[in-house]
Design a binder for these strands. Structure first.
Length: 331
DNA sequence: GGGCGGTACTG
DNA sequence: CAGTAC
DNA sequence: GCCC
């Protein structure tokens, strides 16, 4: 079995474990392993041959064994058993916003739902709303999620995302309560495709901003509307999130929500090695857990300041993929 | 053997 | 409060 | 699950 197929198997293992209610950290380990493998430049056969698979960060004893077995035989007992125990239709349900492993499990056990089709019927008959932990609103959300799932699941070309950003950003800039605003996320990193749009605003008066954001033209659904975080969906399926933070936190939050996740992990580790703790809220001494004291002792008036505080050279968004750029920025 | 991010929003 | 999402 |  080749690398691509093995990556696929590892990802599916993660998904199935999610539905089985496995330990989230275990699930993460599988999807991290899949990503690592996917981005590995070397030939998988060579690496296995030389017995170096386990040397790769994120791939330990269990994953090494499974990957080697798949590579050599194309079969994996562990995987086959998992496949046999999870109805394939349940996997598709994870694409529906608001449904995770736990809820899917309940739907399956209580209502015998085993596919998008049977789930649709269960919703239409009102059986989902009667379940504990569910309700009428959940039911409607599931139905609309099903109806739009192709659009929702799809990523969008950077170019399309940009035309959307060009419409939203100026509107935000014009609001008097907005002190600073940036688009973050994979859009800011310049990825070829963009999942959701992520906007970040500095302000001490979020309410009017959130109200404006959740009532823009072209919105088909407001998925969340809070003080610091709101989320909307446009016709065409593009989703946009807005976060409002106090201006002292702006660059920490911008860095955090620009990602990538792997990059953030590296940066947090780097901070920890200096006895500091980095988060979207700020940079503070590690033991000072009290995040109620909002702004940390370290100030940042730009993203550069954050890198500087960690003794790193600036890494532009497009390089923040957690693939060694943090190490390379050491100086 | 213990930690793995910490928080906001929904129902 | 649990579940989900980021 | 992986890492320390």
């Amino acid at each position: 079995m080749d690398k691509k197929d093995i990556v696929e198997v590892l990802e599916r293992i993660g998904t199935m474990m999610e539905i089985k209610g496995e330990n989230p950290f275990k699930i993460r380990a599988y999807s991290a392993g899949a990503r690592t493998l996917q981005t590995m430049e070397e030939d998988l056969g060579d690496v296995i041959e030389e017995g170096r698979l386990g040397d790769i960060p994120g791939i330990g004893k269990a994953l090494t064994e499974k990957i080697e077995t798949l590579y050599a035989t194309g079969e994996l007992e562990f995987y086959n058993k998992l496949v046999a125990s999870v109805p394939s239709g349940l996997m598709d349900m994870l694409d529906i916003p608001g449904l995770g492993g736990k809820k899917i499990k309940v739907l399956h056990e209580k209502l015998d739902v085993d596919s998008i089709e049977t789930l649709t019927v269960a919703c239409q008959e009102g059986r989902v709303a009667e379940l504990k932990g569910f309700g009428k609103k959940t039911e409607e959300k599931i139905l609309s999620g099903i109806k739009n799932r192709e659009a929702y699941a799809a990523r969008h070309l950077w170019w399309d995302a940009q035309s959307m950003v060009k419409k939203i950003l100026p509107g935000l800039e014009e609001l008097p309560e907005v002190e600073r605003v940036e688009a973050a996320g994979s859009f800011r990193r310049g990825m070829e495709t963009v999942g959701d749009l992520d906007f970040l605003v500095a302000s001490s008066n979020p309410t009017p901003i959130m109200d404006w954001f959740t009532s823009m033209d072209g919105i088909v659904e407001v998925t969340a509307h809070g003080e610091t975080k709101s989320s909307v969906r446009f016709e065409g399926g593009m989703q946009a999130d807005l976060r409002v933070v106090p201006s002292e936190q702006f660059y920490f939050a911008l860095h955090h929500f620009t990602g990538s996740k792997d990059h953030n992990v590296r940066m947090r580790q780097k901070a920890l090695s200096l006895g500091l703790s980095l988060s979207e809220w700020g940079l503070r001494p590690e033991e000072e857990k009290d995040s109620s004291r909002k702004a940390g002792p370290v100030e940042a008036n730009s993203e550069e300041d954050i890198f500087k505080a960690l003794g790193l050279q600036y890494v532009p968004p497009s390089l923040r993929e957690g693939m060694g750029e943090v190490e390379a920025a050491e100086r």
